[in-house]
Amino acid sequence: MRFSNHPFWLVGFRPFFTLACLAGMLLPVAWALIFSGAIAAPVASFTSVQWHAHEMFFGFGWAVLGGFLLTSTKNWVNIRGYHGPALMLLAAAWIIERIGMAFGGNWPKTLFLLSNNLFLGSIVAMLLWTLIRHRDTDSYRDNAFFLIMLPGFLLAKYLMLEGGEFPAGYSMAMALFRLAFLVMLERTLTGFMKAAFQAQILRHPALDMTIKLLGLMLVVEFALPRPLTAAVSLLLATLLVIRFFYWKPQLAFKRLDIGVMYIGYLCIVAQLLIEALGHVMSFVWIGSVSVHLFTFGAMGLVIPGMIVRISKGHTGRKVVFDGGDKLVLVIMLVALVARIIVPQFAPAAYLGWIHLSATCWFVAFGILAWRYIPILLQSRIDGREH
């Protein structure tokens, strides 16, 4: 068997969920050690905070989003999808970017920029090519949002590191991920609630579209007047709350694997409310609560379940959360509480809470890596090729 024909390279989720597990283990721990002064920050033209934000969004976040979109887009438009050498090159580019971010501070500027943009530029171009070329057979008309979001990530990345506008860049990156989550939650929870409880949840086209359009507006929050940003954030949070109560949370919370997705949804609401209020009044929060509500609440809670579901379902296994899978979700809930809630009441131990939450990520994604990387390396058990 040629190496490029190995099962690992047949579908995008296999290499990129592997990289996501490794990134989820290592990147938060590395940041906790840098933050506490135990290890030195990367030597570069950007700060350690820029490094941390970039690596969590464009390292960990894009390993997950890349794996998801490489897998989903081929199903949305009903084509074979990228595999073999194409995936090998993308994975290599992702790894090169991590090396550049960690050790490329003294590299020639051109070499660093190449290492830093090769992965995102390539995968965005490949995904856009798939969605645009096969637009007529696309199952979801609102994938037009991805046609806007994907190039937007390139701008956000530039602003974060090279454009001298870090706050605008990380705000834009978070808004883009938030919009992607809103699109994905809308689609997936409809199917999950029907499969788990035979329950139909509210899908009102006008409401759903308004939510996504408001989310899209917030992508350029940095360019909007503060009162307008506050109003849009508040309106979006209000519509999400209204829809939440029509999505039958009383049923969802009976299942941990679905309940954590609803908690992630509520964390998006809370993050929007804090953003809205922060534009009109002053609050004293410990530890960048707004951004971490999203990264720990939405990303941290939803992504592990996504990895479990796709890894099992797309390798021919029954999608059932066993004890090990549920343990991962519980650990990530502990991470959320340790990073967001507890520091507000015990700020003196803030450094300890950062280390605890980073340890939770290490353990949770370590369990996922131990359990699922072997599965990702194997052929499907149902005899299908991919």
Rank of each mutant, 00 (worst) to 15 (best):
F68Y: 14
E97M: 15
Y350L: 09
M174D: 08
N5V: 07
E275D: 04
G12R: 01
S290Y: 00
V308I: 09
V29Q: 11
M56W: 02
Y350V: 03
L327E: 05
L218Y: 05
F244T: 10
A358G: 06
G164E: 02
F16T: 02
F60P: 08
I201Q: 09
W9I: 01
H279P: 01
L26H: 02
L216G: 14
M126W: 06
Q250E: 15
V77I: 13
V308P: 04
D322V: 14
K194R: 15
A53T: 10
N116A: 15
A338N: 06
M281F: 14
S282V: 12
I211R: 12
I274K: 09
F17R: 00
I331C: 03
H355P: 01
G366S: 10
L87W: 11
L301G: 05
I286H: 12
L89F: 13
I303C: 04
L301A: 09
L256M: 12
G259V: 00
T71F: 05
F60H: 12
P304C: 08
T229P: 08
T137D: 04
W285D: 13
Q271L: 02
F362A: 11
L113S: 10
Y170Q: 12
A63H: 08
V330G: 08
F222T: 14
G264E: 01
L33P: 05
I258H: 03
K254F: 04
M25W: 01
L182F: 07
A199H: 13
A92R: 03
C21G: 03
A206C: 14
F321D: 06
L182T: 03
L256W: 07
P42V: 14
A195G: 12
I367W: 06
T190A: 15
M101D: 03
K326M: 10
M281C: 13
I242M: 12
V330N: 13
W247Y: 11
M299L: 13
W94G: 04
W9Q: 05
A369I: 07
G152V: 07
F222C: 10
A40R: 15
S233N: 05
L182G: 02
V284T: 03
L118V: 13
M217H: 14
L150Y: 03
F16W: 01
A20T: 07
I263D: 06
A63P: 08
H355E: 10
